[in-house]
Design a binder for these strands. Sequence first.
DNA 1: ATACAATATCAATAAGTATTGATATAATTA
DNA 2: TAATTATATCAATACTTATTGATATTGTAT
Lengths: 100, 100
Amino acid sequence: MKPKCCNNKKSLAEISQVADFLKIISEENRLKIFCLLKENERCVCDIWQYLGLAQNLVSHHLKVLKDFGLLAARQEGLKVIYSINKKVVKKYLKLLNRFL
Amino acid sequence: MKPKCCNNKKSLAEISQVADFLKIISEENRLKIFCLLKENERCVCDIWQYLGLAQNLVSHHLKVLKDFGLLAARQEGLKVIYSINKKVVKKYLKLLNRFL
DNA sequence: ATACAATATCAATAAGTATTGATATAATTA
DNA sequence: TAATTATATCAATACTTATTGATATTGTAT
């Protein structure tokens, strides 16, 4: 019996997208960051201090999340406030459900 | 403002669990396997031939998925038939929603 | 018992990615 | 303008994990 999925370019491209999304959020520290931001937007210093992680490490993870579109950032004085881009998250969760 | 999440052992353990789950399904070939099995249970030879992957590679990925509880396997003659353990998948998807 | 087909295992290597340390940039205040 | 604070960048290293090649195991049929 021929499988309906994984047999065309569109499906394969979507699988690749979902995999990328999952890879990004499967990192434990990034998941913690997400967890923090789910409650409230926060500045970088709040995040790294609360999680007990190095500042540059958190900055790096935030960049990964932001580059993928999952987070948004805005400057507020010296601080940069990060927040979750709910629309994008929903989009990927929806896609994920198609494959799981 | 003190965050409600990531601040107790239970939450941290759940985040760790979710991360493990996500790491496992974020692998593109494993996602393809999942995609195939979502339609129908299949034997190993069907899977590797259909996906164009090495037999031992598919066997390895199946083991990873099975060890984590996401797949079930049953012997049928020479063949081993793998299928999705829907209950377990649902459990992790539910957990995932708590953090995303 | 022997041969064959399907699957699994294992060691070695390759590839990808998180982390660290050092340093740079940017905004604010004195 | 100089100093300070918050954040970002970059190169090097450490880790983890996927892949490969060779081989073992298991079930079936001759």
